[in-house]
């Protein structure tokens, strides 16, 4: 199926209905295996001890918080440049899911920081930039809800998303550019991962499972958003044509 075919919301809904059961099954299976390996099979870290198990949710959630915003930035381009009918629908559906995963990253990071760093929170570059990401998600959700016309809201939100995307490289490279309490990159880095395979593989499996879960939630939220816009259009039709059926 060509990408252009997916521009049709009805075709997207039909495809989503076919894909979602498989996506949910794969997400539950892969995430279940990953969490089992992370909680019960992976050894304690030689420095962090058992608290390393928090990493199996913290790291995928942190990756997905950025992945979600990256997808929103691509969708924003789709809205402004190509005027793709589903681009704004996608961005609007991603925002609450991305906000939820960012919140998970912040909470689990704090719960890891207290026993390891001795503090729940530190205003260092990495933590602060991720908090800014979370606030940007919330701000965009508020913006979409504040403007009644979805097309106008979509264009305004798309501009704000693209402006806010400058925060993504700041989050990624904050640990290199500034002297932060947060550790540097240890998985995706020049010279390869510094994590032992016994911890790395469960982490990667958890990340794949969490990504499948993220995508399943986004596709469901997209279906809801398409229905919401369809209902709005029908209400406009009902308001303009008293007989009900538009010609």
């Amino acid at each position: 199926m060509a990408l252009l075919d997916l521009a049709n919301p009805t075709r997207f809904m039909a495809l989503a209905d076919r894909v979602l059961p498989w996506l949910w099954s794969a997400a539950i299976l892969v995430l279940g295996i990953g969490l089992y390996l992370g909680l019960f099979v992976a050894p304690p870290d030689y420095q962090q001890g058992e608290t390393v198990r928090i990493m199996f949710i913290h790291v995928p959630a942190a990756w997905l918080s950025m992945f979600g915003y990256g997808l929103m930035a691509v969708s924003a381009l789709g809205t402004l440049v190509w005027r793709h009918p589903l681009a704004d629908v996608a961005a609007r559906a991603i925002a609450p899911v991305g906000a939820a995963f960012t919140l998970i990253a912040l909470i689990t990071g704090s719960l890891w920081g207290k026993p390891m760093w001795g503090t729940w929170w530190e205003w260092d570059a990495r933590l602060t930039s991720v908090l800014v990401l979370f606030l940007m998600y919330l701000g965009l959700i508020a913006l979409w809800n504040a403007i009644e016309d979805p097309n106008r809201a979509g264009r305004v939100a798309a501009v704000l998303i693209l402006v806010g995307s400058v925060n993504l490289p700041i989050i990624k490279f904050s640990v290199d550019w500034w002297n932060t309490l947060h550790q540097g990159a240890s998985v995706f880095r020049m010279g390869g991962s510094t994590i032992d395979p016994s911890l790395l593989y469960p982490l990667l499996i958890c990340a794949i499972g969490a990504t499948l879960l993220f995508l399943a939630l986004v596709i469901m939220a997209m279906k809801n958003e398409i229905l919401r816009r369809r209902i709005r259009a029908l209400r406009l039709v009902a308001a303009s044509v008293p007989a009900g059926v538009a010609a």
Partner: peptide, 29 residues
């Protein structure tokens, strides 16, 4: 070990947040 409270809190709160999003998507749908 001694930090099990932090580990359970991290997994528990994450599960609550994910379940809340799942519930919101289903109810909204």
């Amino acid at each position: 070990g001694e930090h099990s409270g932090y580990i359970f809190a991290a997994y528990g709160l994450s599960a609550v947040i994910v379940l809340a999003v799942v519930a919101w998507v289903l109810v909204d749908g």
